[in-house]
């Protein structure tokens, strides 16, 4: 049985913050406002993480900063019969499509261009909309965040493709492939944007949706 005092906020559909409480983002345990550390899992508690957006932006800029050389530097360096050919992400995609390798071309295009660019835009849009209270249709902002969090890590596919290709295509003088510096920049860019999305305090997104519903 739940007594009146605890069942009241549930009946009214309140968040922990609105009820003057703090919820742990790691395990869900509820505490009185002002508690510093979760009694269940030991994680630090914030009613809303004020530093969250600054971390989101810091990782976002770091990710964008390395995404530029990731596109300009070669991902792969191919040596065929003594001749060296560098290929960037876009260059590789064009080559695959030209050879009729549509599947590989489209996967690389999705993983290395569409997902990262989409993620930069989506995270910036979400962060700005939380910061300035921009109006977005109900739930759309949250769906967008889930997409970012779930899809973002799949960009790493291209780094694995590069690693396997380079490890296998080592046929002496005939043909050999080595990874280029673009692969390092790309891996860093994926890691930084993942950290950016992980820093997001999702509860702030829902606070905004709540405010819009009431007006």
């Amino acid at each position: 049985m739940v007594d009146m005092e605890t069942s009241e906020p549930i009946r009214r559909g309140l968040t922990a913050r609105q009820a003057g409480l703090v919820g742990c983002v790691r395990c869900g345990t509820v505490h009185r406002r002002g508690t510093k550390e979760c009694r269940t899992c030991g994680a630090r508690l914030h009613s809303r993480d004020r530093m969250s957006l600054q971390h989101v932006w810091a990782w976002w800029f770091a990710g964008l900063f390395v995404y530029i050389p990731a596109n300009l530097l070669p991902m792969l360096r191919t040596e065929i019969l003594g001749r060296t050919v560098d290929s960037t992400i876009i260059g590789g995609v064009i080559e695959f499509i030209a050879h009729g390798d549509y599947f590989v071309g489209i996967v690389v295009l999705l993983a290395s261009v569409a997902i990262p660019v989409g993620k930069f835009i989506a995270v910036a849009y979400l962060a700005l909309s939380v910061q300035f209270g921009l109006k977005i249709r109900k739930h759309r902002r949250h769906v967008l965040f889930e997409v970012v969090e779930f899809i973002g890590r799949w960009s790493m596919v291209d780094v694995f493709v590069v690693a396997l290709t380079a490890a296998l295509v080592q046929l002496g003088f005939v043909i050999s492939i080595v990874p280029g510096l673009g692969a390092v920049c790309f891996a860093l860019s994926v890691a930084f944007t993942m950290l950016s999305a992980q820093s997001f305090d999702t509860r702030a997104i829902w606070d905004r949706i709540e405010e819009q519903d009431q007006t």
Binding site: D3, A16, L21, G28
Partner: peptide, 19 residues
């Protein structure tokens, strides 16, 4: 008390309280 609060769970994603 903590025992009362243990009857609640706050959604880690959106902070909504549940019993």
């Amino acid at each position: 008390t903590d025992t009362d609060l243990d009857r609640l769970i706050a959604c880690p994603t959106c902070d909504l309280l549940h019993e």
